[in-house]
Amino acid sequence: MLRDITIGQYYPAESVLHKLDPRTKLMATLLYMVSLFVFRGAPGFAVVTAALCLVIWLSKVPFGYMVKGLKAIVVILLITAVFNLFLTPGEAIFTFWKLKITYEGLQNAGFMVIRLIYLILGSSILTLTTTPNQLTDGLEKSMKPLNKIHVPVHEIAMMMSIALRFIPILIEETDKIMKAQLARGADFESGNLLKKAKSMVPLLVPLFISAFRRANDLAMAMEARCYHGGEGRTKMKPLKYRRLDGTAYIIVFVYFAIVIWIRIA
């Protein structure tokens, strides 16, 4: 049940995208996100869609698997659509009491929903093809310059990678404790809100205790292996750009230029 959350999960496969340097992918994702808010009109839309399709195809991640991640944002999509639909002023096509649907509203809602879906799909390709470790490595390296103005880049990256690593562990733990309490006749589903909230106590107390215990153990283990922060620390697998990354950068920049050009022209 809880395991079915696919958003932000890594999907192992042998593809070009999996082989790219995480920094390249981060940059590409950033530019792609910007382009989503820059593009205009049908030609722009066509280019953005084509790019997304190409990347999905290149990633070798099953499309169905990717779409499953969208389930999590259905509510947000609906809210966005409804607000755009009713609150955009313009030429009314349908009026009901004080609410009116305008032609512009319809257009806006459509574009906004598509934008959000593309945004999620685009960024989930980043996480699907990059292991959490690579991702934080990439972030750390790209943010290195910020160290000069005393931003603790390494610490932030370390915290992120630990947090990411803990998500599946905590999900697993929740699953285990839930089952153990179910076996003792606990009921997490029925009853009113108050009763439901109360029924969470047997789940949350052991979960917190185990999370603290794990955090404590991890801190001990890190200390035992002489961890002392980022200063002078070397990497086992240092990030290195390869020819593939160069090509990828060129393609991404060309894509971005085209989107901008369509917008200006």
Partner: peptide
Amino acid sequence: RGKVGLVFQYPEHQLFETTIFADVCFG
């Protein structure tokens, strides 16, 4: 689940009440 009682591997992680007695009463 009341008739087929299952004690999990490392069941000590399921304890949550303030006293042992209260925890055993949970089932």
